[in-house]
């Protein structure tokens, strides 16, 4: 039985969670920086962020830098845990297949 997380498994959301989980725990990444890093459109990133936010995996915070509004993103502790479990599940699939190989 696979423990893959259906929210995180979607390719774009997997990449979002991979990026945010790579940050130090107290760090937040700018929306524009993440969009450029993952080569996504504003709309595409927003849609997937909403789903991750609804699941409680990502925290979205609005702030002003000078007079410009900016959106900062971070993986929540629940998000980091779910992502780590998802990675473990992927590794387990590989190991299981290697064990069963003739």
């Amino acid at each position: 039985m696979s423990n893959l997380n259906s929210v995180i498994h979607q390719p774009v959301r997997l990449r979002i969670m991979a990026a945010l989980s790579a940050l130090p725990e107290d760090a937040q990444l700018d929306f524009v920086a993440l969009r450029k890093m993952l080569d996504l459109t504003d709309g595409n990133l927003s849609v997937h962020l909403r789903k991750l936010e609804d699941a409680g995996y990502v925290q979205v915070e609005k702030a002003f830098v000078g007079r410009k509004p900016r959106t900062y993103l971070a993986a929540t502790p629940e998000g980091r845990k779910a992502f780590a479990e998802h990675v473990q599940a992927l590794q387990a699939i590989i190991q299981r297949n290697e064990t069963n190989a003739p």
Partner: peptide, 27 residues
């Protein structure tokens, strides 16, 4: 949800690449 070994390897490779890119942005 079931995926093949190759798919799992591809996903892990994607994760590794994105995390490396993020760390590079910090570095």
């Amino acid at each position: 949800m079931e995926i093949s070994k190759n798919e799992a390897q591809d996903y892990l490779e994607t994760i590794r690449t994105v995390q490396q890119k993020t760390r590079r942005a910090i570095a």
